[in-house]
Amino acid sequence: MTVMPDPQIHIRHALYEDEEALARLDRATWSPLHAVQPRPRPPYEPFFNDRFGPLDHLVAELAELAELAELAGRGDAVVGYVRLGFPTPLECNAHVRQIQGLAVAEEARGAGVARALLRAAQDEARRQGARRITLRVLGHNTPARKLYESEGFVVEGVLPEEFFIDGAYVDDVLMGRSL
């Protein structure tokens, strides 16, 4: 069964003007289910940095929220993002892209935003000439693993008990797929 993307979800490259909205979203969606870093605390680091800028991010907007944000005089209708990068700086690995972050606002969950972002990331990786796309997900993050599997990602390796999070050892699961 093919799931068609929701026409109410608009995916685009991030802009520098999205930085504040993306930083807020990143902080709001922090959870030990997917984060290996401690909860962010002030003073907050910039969302964009030397390693990842706007062109490394695709953002999702929901049409209905975009209209509300515009009416309220805000330009931040961003409800999700995916970060796409290189897994290593090696030239021999340049044919691979890696999803290095995916977040969806609580109010947009269940609307297909994560799936739309995941598909857009694969399209962008293909556009960049990649032959493969990979990601890492924590073993206890069952919802994310099911989403990735439903989009053709397979487990390619497991680093057992790689992280100690919230008093428990957690596997680091490596997933990937051909493009």
Rank of each mutant, 00 (worst) to 15 (best):
T2G: 13
V3E: 00
V3C: 05
V3S: 09
M4W: 11
D6G: 09
D6I: 01
H10S: 14
I11H: 04
I11D: 11
I11F: 07
H13D: 08
H13S: 03
A14P: 13
A14M: 05
L15V: 00
L15H: 15
L15I: 02
Y16W: 09
E19F: 13
E19A: 04
E20T: 02
E20G: 10
E20C: 07
L22H: 12
A23T: 01
D26Q: 13
R27L: 08
R27Y: 02
A28C: 05
W30Y: 07
W30K: 05
P32A: 03
H34K: 04
Q37D: 15
R41D: 12
P42Y: 07
P42E: 02
Y44H: 10
Y44V: 12
P46V: 03
F47M: 05
F48M: 08
F48Q: 00
D50P: 06
D50W: 06
F52C: 01
F52N: 01
G53Q: 01
P54Q: 10
P54E: 10
L55R: 00
H57D: 04
L58M: 05
E61A: 08
E64M: 07
E64V: 13
L65F: 15
A66N: 07
E70I: 03
E70G: 15
L71V: 07
A72D: 09
G73E: 01
G75K: 08
A77S: 15
G80M: 02
Y81F: 15
V82P: 03
L84F: 11
F86L: 10
T88M: 07
P89C: 07
N93T: 10
H95V: 09
Q98A: 14
Q98P: 14
I99Q: 00
L102P: 13
E106V: 02
R109Q: 12
G112K: 07
A114W: 08
R115W: 03
R115T: 05
R115D: 11
L117H: 12
A121C: 02
D123N: 12
D123E: 10
R127Y: 12
Q128L: 15
R131I: 13
R131H: 13
R132K: 13
R132F: 10
R132M: 05
I133C: 13
T134D: 15
V137S: 00
G139C: 05
N141A: 02
N141K: 12
T142K: 08
A144M: 14
A144F: 03
R145I: 00
K146Y: 02
K146Q: 15
E149N: 03
S150G: 01
E151Y: 08
G152K: 12
G152E: 06
F153Q: 08
F153K: 02
V155P: 03
E156I: 06
G157V: 09
G157N: 03
L159G: 03
E161P: 14
E162D: 14
F163A: 08
I165L: 06
D166N: 15
Y169D: 02
Y169K: 04
Y169C: 09
Y169L: 11
Y169I: 01
Y169Q: 05
V170I: 14
D171Y: 03
D172M: 11
V173D: 00
L174Y: 15
M175K: 14
R177T: 04
R177L: 01
